[in-house]
Design a protein around this nucleic acid. Structure first.
Lengths: 167, 167
DNA sequence: AATAAGTTTCAATTATTTTTGAAAGTTTAA
DNA sequence: TTAAACTTTCAAAAATAATTGAAACTTATT
């Protein structure tokens, strides 16, 4: 396989994976493209390589920057903006975790707390509901805290974690 | 908040969360409904509670069974089929992890292997591509193996894991 | 302060995904 | 073996999400 083909295959695959995880295809593709680029890429180049419109590129780049995993860069003497991706994978994982926690997990926890603390009357049905949502709350809270812990490990937490798990 | 309201809120929230994670809303809602039901639920009841068509219910129940997190049950003397959800949350997490690994991670690893092993010529661009995709391969492989390990812990791995992480 | 270079926004369009509903298929019981 | 009870399938319709493109906006240059 030659370089261009491999690069394209990677970008497509990353895009498809993104879709399956609730990230829009183009956003994932742009991210993939920037991840494997050794130097900052302009919006023009992104549009060209992925065959997408200016508006699309602009919006998805903004989205990626909101996630904190793509940065804007300026080149001396150039008016255009360039973009780079976070390339450290541990850092990338930490940022994505943090952001998903903030956007999705925390609000869900809030609701779980609410619904699990209704007064359970005496019916088995209601008791089971309270019991199950309480368990779910505890579980999600624990999982979310684990993500927080990961950020403390910081350097290569995944490797360290696996070593601990082996023991 | 009264029971019916809480239940509805939970089902809606779980459905919305599903969407954000690439699981279709109805599938997530059915799962939520079954999780908090203390006894098996018929397709009729699911249709009624979620206000969805028979076809929709049928297809999404099938999907949930393919994930291995919803089971069919038969009640003595009843012709209808009933459904229950996996309610043990550790077990649920393990099953979802296993299935996502099989369906999404493993195929992605295969592609990453392919594209990271092209002959890198001498250009910095190509070298960076090979380097970055190799790192990505290693990272995803490690993360995937961690999921496997979780299944070995089996009983309350999340709690144990957090304790280990604290140390 | 006018112009040029570049970016963002958003209503309209297009593509994708989900849902419906009725026909076809299955299974059980008489 | 027929009919009734129930489930599955899938083409068409509806709902949702992504994309375009051109006008509005911003910033830098002359």
């Amino acid at each position: 396989m030659e370089f261009k083909e491999a690069k394209n295959k990677f970008v497509q695959t990353w895009g498809a994976l993104g879709s399956q995880w609730g990230i829009n295809k183009t956003m994932a593709q742009i991210h993939a493209l920037l991840m494997v680029s050794n130097e900052p890429v302009s919006m023009e180049d992104i549009m060209e390589e992925l065959q997408i419109s200016r508006g699309n590129a602009s919006m998805n780049l903004r989205g990626l920057m909101d996630w904190g995993i793509v940065y804007k860069e300026y080149k001396a003497g150039e008016r255009k903006e360039f973009f780079t991706a976070e390339k450290d994978l541990d850092e990338l994982a930490v940022k994505i975790s943090r952001e998903r926690s903030k956007r999705e997990i925390k609000p869900t926890l809030k609701i779980l707390k609410e619904v699990s603390t209704i007064e359970a009357k005496d019916s088995a049905e209601e008791k089971h509901f309270v019991d199950q949502t309480t368990k779910l709350y505890d579980f999600v809270l624990k999982a979310d805290n684990m993500l927080d812990k990961m950020t403390e490990f910081n350097e290569n937490w995944l490797g360290k974690l696996i070593i601990k798990m082996m023991k």
